[in-house]
Design a protein around this nucleic acid. Structure first.
Length: 423
RNA sequence: GUGGGAUUAGCACAGUUGGUUAGCGCGCCAGAUUGUGGCUCUGGAGGUCGUCGGUUCGAAUCCGAUAUCCCACCCCA
């Protein structure tokens, strides 16, 4: 029976992996520019890490986790995101006693049991950063500047940065009461989902897309009016810093974020083209998370970017440029002796960093030429009786038809490598 | 978890009111007087029509279930 990949997973074939390498390398290079170092964390954690880290009341934890029991009776969960695991690692390895701030980046797969749609899979890829130890708004601004820089590097257009502050637990508690006081009398006008989640997490009612709920919340009190002095300062300073750097943004008081750990600054980069899966990057500050996972009180901020969505967007904008590969040479070998010689020649050239292929299928010269053409080889070199007898080969460009063939000694590896390395 | 649409060769698709050996294009392989690609021409390989079950003399076609994909809700990256 033919096997299928599980629902929500996908194979990434050679036609597209170059694009993935492109966005990931660009990201990694940029991370290094901003002082971030890579961390690699386990694919699964004790379920508790996510229950406590992401938040018991969140949809992610309540209905989207791949949780299983291992043979030792432990409850484990495939990571539904990166932050909780990175924070766990930060705490477990005592990284707080290294120099602060600690800046970490990661490129991971993550897993959520959700219904599949375009730009949404059960196994998906995220690139993200986490910065620990800095509590002021400058790091917030820097993180946003870094993302701005990244998108500029990729040439991405038609996206918007939305920011908000959801305050610290203190202002949030007060705001929560105010919001509940506003919502309770209007409860029967809300959709069923919102009625259910109202008491548990009333902030989420704010970004409900149901028209009736939006009507109800249109005049609801805004969190921004309930920030205490410190949180308000933080947010105002951040906005000023963004203005100074010329980074445009929109304050969107309805951004709430479905993960419990966020405090103060939250943000999203939203595509203006793509439909419902338009959020290509989301993040924010999480000043209580390190402590919640058993570490010392430590502020933190980070973001995660959905690679599938980013690539969708880049593709829609015609921006995925294939990596320019190094020069490639094809050796057409026409008989057994030539095959042996081709192999030796290929190895010698590969040792000098030239990408070389030769015939392994005993094909005719004509067929070999076709193969070289279809596989975008830059140069070809025919190896047959004549060449072996004379000890010389003709090096011809397949890219530039006008380029003259060059005769080179068969064993003159240095000259061959030199010519090939020129392009 | 809920609702709608789809599933025929590696890819993109035809397939008449159920009726012989299920087709086209691209791709793949081979050849076009025996050593020079991308064009053209010729030939070839490749499908238990997603899967299982039912109706029927007969099912790619009708019915049911299931899997997967797409779209929307929900949620998020």
């Amino acid at each position: 029976m033919k096997q299928q990949a599980p629902k929500g997973t996908q194979d990434l074939l050679p036609e597209v992996t170059l694009n993935w390498q492109y966005v990931e390398r660009t990201f990694e290079d940029l991370c290094k520019l901003y002082g971030y170092e890579e961390i690699r964390i386990p694919t699964f954690e004790h379920s508790e890490v996510f229950q406590r880290g992401v938040g018991e009341t969140t949809d992610v934890v309540q209905k989207e986790m791949y949780t299983f029991e291992d043979k030792g009776g432990r409850s484990l969960t495939l990571r539904p995101e990166g932050t909780a695991g990175v924070v766990r690692a930060y705490v477990e390895n005592g990284m707080g006693s290294k120099t602060s701030p600690q800046r970490l980046f990661y490129v991971i797969t993550a897993f959520r049991y959700e219904n599949v749609q375009k730009g949404r899979y059960r196994e998906f890829h995220q690139m993200g950063v986490e910065a620990f130890g800095a509590k002021g708004p400058h790091i917030d601004a820097e993180v946003l500047a870094m993302l701005d820089h990244y998108f500029e590097e990729l040439g991405l257009k038609d996206y918007a940065l939305h920011i908000n502050s959801i305050g610290c637990p203190n202002c949030r508690a007060q705001y929560r009461e105010a919001l509940l006081a506003y919502l309770r009398p209007k409860k029967d006008q809300l959709c069923q989902d919102c009625q259910n989640r109202m008491e548990e997490n009333p902030l989420r009612v704010l970004d409900c897309k149901e028209k009736s709920c939006q009507d109800v919340t249109k005049d609801a009190p805004l969190i921004l009016d309930y920030l205490d002095e410190e949180c308000k300062d933080h947010f105002d300073t951040l906005k000023g810093l963004l203005d100074d750097m010329g980074i445009s943004y929109k304050v969107d008081p309805r951004i709430v974020r479905g993960l419990d750990y966020y405090t103060k600054t939250v943000f999203e980069f939203v595509s203006e083209n793509v439909g419902t899966q338009g959020t290509i990057c989301g993040g924010g500050r999480y000043d209580g998370l390190v402590e919640a996972l058993g570490g010392p009180s430590t502020p933190g901020i980070g973001f995660a970017m959905g690679e599938e969505r980013l690539l969708m967007e880049l593709e829609a904008q015609g921006l995925v440029k294939p990596h320019s590969l190094e020069t490639t040479l094809y050796i057409a070998n026409l008989n057994d002796a030539a095959h042996t010689e081709a192999q030796a020649l290929a190895q010698a050239l590969r040792r000098r960093g030239i990408s070389v292929q030769y015939d392994l299928m005993d094909r005719s010269l004509r067929a070999q030429m076709k193969y070289a053409g279809k596989n975008n080889m830059d140069y070809i070199l025919v190896l047959g009786e004549d060449e072996l007898a004379r000890g010389k080969v003709m090096l011809r460009s397949l890219v530039d038809r006008d380029k003259e063939e060059v005769e080179v000694g068969l064993h003159d590896i240095d000259t061959l490598a030199e010519i090939l390395a020129e392009d």
